[in-house]
Structure formats: structure tokens, C-alpha cells
């Protein structure tokens, strides 16, 4: 046997196994081929979450609702933080929805590689599926909590404008942000287990540099674009614009900056993840 046969690459149906070096291609086509697995893993996560606790559905509501109550008392009533002319409860709840979507998706995605360790060390599939599926499964909580928001909009007699059409894109932007950061953290966590302890701290800080409890309009105008480098700024203020019609805190350039950063984080996260991928099975 000579090595020449190995030189004739890429015949269909033939898998070549060899060491990869440095940065490698993303192989997004593999992802498409395994789309059913993405679906099944997402479905598993959702099913298990709502099966394990009867309170599953309730939890999805309690978290944003209680946060809203506490924020309304302390930030809205006591600290008298302005709320761009809408009642503070709905002002904060509208922000909490995408924020909790982002932070919970980020937290499950970051832990996902380590918690699926057994699967990863036994079966081959594109590893990116694992964080991807866990981000997707977080969407269900979001939609459950969204029902409360609809109720609140009736209560406060807020009629959404045509701007509501932005909503799907904004949800997507929140998911892209969570996925991008999730790729980074999940790969890092395989390597450095203490990243897990760092996560709550990171999300807590992140929440305060995101206009959740206060409006972005509190930030001086000239700093707004810099402020929008946090992709969640664009998402959260975009949500308020789309649902409550507030215009003081958001501008198209801000959305564009936020989106640009989110996509940049996603792409870099994908490449970093792929680069680390070959070591996963060795380290888990």
C-alpha cells in the first residue's frame, strides 16, 4: 500500500481522518446534515425541562415577574429611575424578557459541552450542535413569559405599532449574541473548569451594562454608539421600541452596531470552538 491513494482527496462517500492544525474550516455543511440531531437535542432539553418539574412553566414566568416587582419597587419607585415615559413595571418587564432569554441561553450553552461530556466522548457528530441546541431550547421559556407581557400591554392600554415587525429580528439578535458568547464560554469551560464559577458574575455585570433597569437615554448621546457595542443594548432597547414605541433610547446606528458586534462574536466564537473541538473528547 502506498500513500498515493490518500492524495486523491474528496471522493464522495469517503471520510478522511487526519490531524488538523491551527484554524480549521467551520464545516457548516455538516451542521445541515445533522439537522435532525439539532432538532432532537432541542426537543429533549425542552421535554426534560418541563417534565422534571410541574412548576416548569411557572418558573419561566416567576423569574421575570419577580424581578420586575423588585426592580419596580427599588429602581422605579425608590430610586426614581426614569423610564422613557412608560410605566416602570412594563418598562422593566419588556427588557427582562430578552435579557433573561439571553442570559439563560448563555448559561445553558456554556455548560452544555461539559454536561454532554459522555456523549461527546462516545459518538461523533458536529460538536457545535450541543451549544446550538441548548440555546434553541431556551426560547420556550421566553414565549411563556411573553404571554404575561401581552396581558400587561392590555392592562396599560399600550397598542403596539408597526414597529412590532422588528421583534423576530431582535429575538434572533439576542439568540445570536447568546450563541456567539456561548461558543466561546463552552469551549473555554472544557479547558478551564472554573469558568463555570465566573459565569454568574459575568452575567450579573453584563446585566448592569445593559439598559434593563434604566433606559439607554440616560447615557449621554455622544457615548450611545460606544454603549451599543454591547449587543444586548440594541436588543433590549429595540424590544422597547418595537413593543412600547419608545424612541428616545434607540437609533438605527445603535442597532447596526449591536448587530455587527453580535455577528462578529458569533463568527469568532465558531472559529474558536472549531479550533478547540479536536481536544474536547480528550479533555472531557
Amino acid at each position: 500500500m502506498t500513500t498515493t491513494a490518500l492524495e486523491t482527496k474528496n471522493k464522495p462517500g469517503v471520510v478522511y481522518i487526519k490531524p488538523s492544525r491551527g484554524w480549521v474550516s467551520l464545516r457548516l455543511k455538516d451542521l445541515w446534515e445533522y439537522r435532525e440531531l439539532i432538532y432532537f437535542l432541542t426537543w429533549r432539553d425542552i421535554k426534560v425541562r418541563y417534565k422534571q418539574s410541574v412548576l416548569g412553566i411557572l418558573w419561566a414566568v416567576i423569574n421575570p415577574f419577580m424581578s420586575m416587582v423588585v426592580y419596580t419597587i427599588f429602581f422605579g419607585t425608590l430610586a426614581k429611575i426614569p423610564s422613557d415615559g412608560v410605566p416602570y413595571p412594563i418598562f422593566s418587564y419588556t427588557a427582562l424578557l430578552p435579557w433573561i432569554l439571553f442570559s439563560s441561553a448563555l448559561s445553558v450553552a456554556s455548560r452544555s459541552m461539559v454536561s454532554s461530556g459522555n456523549m461527546i466522548s462516545k459518538v461523533y457528530f458536529p460538536r457545535m450542535i450541543v451549544p446550538l441546541a441548548s440555546v434553541m431550547s431556551s426560547v420556550v421559556d421566553f414565549f411563556i413569559a411573553f404571554i404575561i407581557l401581552i396581558g400587561m400591554m392590555f392592562f396599560y392600554k399600550i397598542t403596539p405599532t408597526i414597529a412590532i415587525l422588528w421583534l423576530p429580528l431582535l429575538i434572533l439578535l439576542a439568540l445570536i449574541s447568546a450563541l456567539g458568547v456561548g461558543f466561546w464560554f463552552s469551549a473555554l469551560m472544557v479547558r478551564y473548569r472554573d469558568v463555570g464559577y465566573l459565569m454568574p458574575f459575568v452575567t450579573e455585570l453584563w446585566k448592569f451594562v445593559t439598559p434593563v433597569v434604566y433606559p439607554a437615554s440616560m447615557i449621554p448621546e455622544k457615548w450611545r454608539l460606544l454603549y451599543a457595542l454591547n449587543p444586548m443594548t440594541g436588543v433590549v432597547e429595540g424590544f422597547r421600541y418595537a413593543l412600547l414605541g419608545t424612541t428616545q433610547s434607540i437609533s438605527l446606528p445603535m442597532i447596526l452596531v449591536s448587530s455587527g458586534i453580535a455577528i462578529l462574536v458569533l463568527i469568532s466564537g465558531l472559529f474558536y470552538f472549531r479550533r478547540m473541538e479536536k481536544q474536547f473528547a480528550d479533555m472531557i
Partner: peptide, 15 residues
Amino acid sequence: LSRVVEPTEGEAEIH
């Protein structure tokens, strides 16, 4: 062979 880990050296082809 099942592509769970990558080899450090060498190659394999699977039809």
C-alpha cells in the same frame, strides 16, 4: 476510527 478523537499523526480513509 469513529472520529470521536483526532489522531496526532497519520491518516485514515473510510469508504
